[in-house]
Design a protein around this nucleic acid. Sequence first.
DNA 1: GCGAGTTGTTCAAGTAGTTTACTTGGGCGA
DNA 2: TCGCCCAAGTAAACTACTTGAACAACTCGC
Lengths: 355, 355
Amino acid sequence: MPASGHVPRLKDVAEAAGVSLSAASRILRGEVDRFGPETCDRVLAAAQKLGWRRNLLVSGMQTGRTKTVGVVIPPFDSFWVDVLSGVHSELATADYLPITIWVGDLHQMPHFEMDEAEGLKKISRLLDRRVDGLILWPSVGAAYYGHFRELVERNVPVAVIDHEYSEDRIADSIETDEEESARAVAQHLLTLGHRRIACLSSREVAGQSWAIRRRKFFERAVTSERGAQVKSWRLNEKGTNGLDVAAEILRDPLQPTAVFAVTDHEARLIYQAAERLRLRIPEDISVIGFADLDFAADLAPPLTTVRQRPVEIGRRAARLVLDRLDQADLADGPTTIRIPADLIVRNSTAPPRST
Amino acid sequence: MPASGHVPRLKDVAEAAGVSLSAASRILRGEVDRFGPETCDRVLAAAQKLGWRRNLLVSGMQTGRTKTVGVVIPPFDSFWVDVLSGVHSELATADYLPITIWVGDLHQMPHFEMDEAEGLKKISRLLDRRVDGLILWPSVGAAYYGHFRELVERNVPVAVIDHEYSEDRIADSIETDEEESARAVAQHLLTLGHRRIACLSSREVAGQSWAIRRRKFFERAVTSERGAQVKSWRLNEKGTNGLDVAAEILRDPLQPTAVFAVTDHEARLIYQAAERLRLRIPEDISVIGFADLDFAADLAPPLTTVRQRPVEIGRRAARLVLDRLDQADLADGPTTIRIPADLIVRNSTAPPRST
DNA sequence: GCGAGTTGTTCAAGTAGTTTACTTGGGCGA
DNA sequence: TCGCCCAAGTAAACTACTTGAACAACTCGC
């Protein structure tokens, strides 16, 4: 049994087995056929007994590969937990480890502000640890954009979730198929008979380009139907006026019969505003959300929403990074992968009252 | 601008500034007063221009400290997200980075089974990367228990959440004050007038010692009241029979007027069973949960529960590990920190119907 | 007794820096 | 003009290994 407080080194193993340092190294790396079986056993046994384990810091220095991927995500909802889960499982297949950092502040969800400088400092910590690649949620695109140059120079592959950078030929991206999903949402409402429809978007700041796309595709899909109108609202920059905007929508002269909220978080705001105004869902107003967050099915009534495939998104993001690391063929430029999503019809949508 | 694909080394900086390697190293580490100010500027400028950044792998090798702490948690609910958030923020103050691995499988929540061998392999990955400390959720105590010896030998401080190991003098632990919280739950129900009370525990497997403590403290608190009775149920080993057990409770000859579920997950089962049996909450049956998970307030009716302080738990766990690393005084044995929790009264509890 | 194969050895260089101990050059006082 | 000191800077050893090359025993068949 080794002395407490002493981390066993290869040297200790070699001495215990009575072989040279390099022999021990080779045997433990699996170069077994150069040595007698009895010697191999001795070395393996000694390593086992001393509790020696390979020092990946050394490998990292020598090969330039640390077998880690940095992941930068916001800290809050079940969508990101699922994404992370996908990332973990895919990276594990290649014996990679994600190192996750969280930007933004918990409990200001989902409309927290991110401190750009702080975010950059955190990414720096990842790069200082020589992560082989990065998976990013680019909350403040601009802030990270400046950093991307350095990443490209260092050949650190980057995959961005829900924010398209492929036009700039800078990073791969993975996102939900916004066009198709928005069309499905619109179709659902139109089929139910709704013609006066509201859309509650998020803050639509730089890092929320998905919200803009989602809203625009939705608007386009609704207005392509003759006689249907959309009117859109959005939260303020800090996302602090959610309830007010939700109430505003419900009292608008347009008298919308349905509201599409670009995420379930905004849908929840509509629920709250509806309760205050004593409007019933779906009798007085239909509500449809997006993301199928974990609370969606437990709302009263259960929320009709669009289920994204966060686990798959996470997996694909990880795969993208791993593939770039494997091939390192800069030849083919950045790609964008679009993942489909599924409409989940629950009880918050119904035909409008005939008035 | 450096050539693409070339990670700048200290050597490059030194050459660009026209100084020796060691001079560059010293200056970049802040040992400025040993050198002429003009030389310092030259080195700093060169480092900036080349985009050089310190390689923490090297520091890790040399000092034996990687400034990382491994975190092993289950992958699912908001409690653990909050714990993780606390861990992150506390570690950040010391410029440490958590490396989080998830054991267990998503979407079997909360009753997933953990593959012991897989869990050990994952911890191995952390140790191979030479994490300085560990924060553990010991799902399968036994599996990790064997590993603890190695950790002690390596002087890797360990903090365990919600599972007391301090009796074994092996690891620090942090947990919710189960005794006080269980008493508060019992008191709340007794004060409302309930006298026939059920308790739905979790699986109570080895890694869920918190569930056992929580239930026992609750039973004790209830029975200390004259005329009050408790009857307890638990889930099966795999946690697959939740709905059945919940229904069984509601149909029990005892005719309980209130149910304490040891977590909000189990409380949700009661809600589901109640709906099937057409029992109203709280009119027919009061329900009280534990944890105040993110869905608790959105249940219908909003769930009365006990709000743990997961962010604080995470913080304290991180602090414990950091303190051990700072002092390395093995002198004082493992401690257990108990964090208080707060009863949140919502609408799922009410006085029993007078029958 | 010679070459060949097996089983190891030592040596040296590499990874990206940090740190100890040293050298160099100039200015200053005696 | 010698000796001394200090500022400024450097060579080399060190972290824990990996890896290629050269080489040394020993055994075996021929």
